[in-house]
Design a protein around this nucleic acid. Sequence first.
DNA 1: CTACCGATTGACT
DNA 2: GTCAATCGGTAGA
Length: 221
Amino acid sequence: MSSEPPISEWPIPDLLPADLPPEPPLPQSFYDRDVVQVARELVGKRIYRLSRSGIAVGRIVETEAYLAAGDSACHATRGMTRKNASMFGPPGRAYVYSIHARWCLNTVTQPRGVPSAVLIRAVQPLLGIERMQRRRNLERTIDLARGPSRLCEAFQIDRRLDGWDLSRGRRLWLTPDPDVPVPDHRIGNSPRIGVTSAFELCLRFYLRGSEYVSGPKRLRT
DNA sequence: CTACCGATTGACT
DNA sequence: GTCAATCGGTAGA
């Protein structure tokens, strides 16, 4: 796989329909805070991915926080390796890692050297749905980005974006919710899915009632 | 080099 | 609900 050339600068012209006005990317200061707060506030935010094959946009509907301390499920608990180095870098970068032959996307939070991150677990596709369908070889919109590795496939996110600066509005970035902010009562909270330790920590956040959230139904309401 | 492991997924009962 | 394929990363010989 060859690396992508820089193909866009913020703001992106002509790529978005008129009813989806572009917003500036979330700044580094958004990510430079407590990881749990960031995880909760990322629900409802938008994710933009501009690659050679075009643009894809979605709404984040599910996240999980991974803590710097006291969290045995966090990849950083046993120190820095080449794989998790992005978690130890500045906030506002992507941390993309592989698991079970697939990729997962995190946003690094907290000050540099405090290894915490938010896993993006599910996204509601908004734009570029046909593109996602081709990448996933799947029709059902609900399943295109419902799951951390599914969304990476739909948005063409892999190892090349590990360490990517999300605050610059190029290739991969997040923006505020242009609609009414998600009210507190629509944000659900539960233990994290799939982890083999630290079950007791309720660090998963999701848009309550959304069909685009992963997990069994009882973890979507 | 080999021997695991896993923040998953898709197929199946 | 169960189960195994998947492969990059890590640790250790």
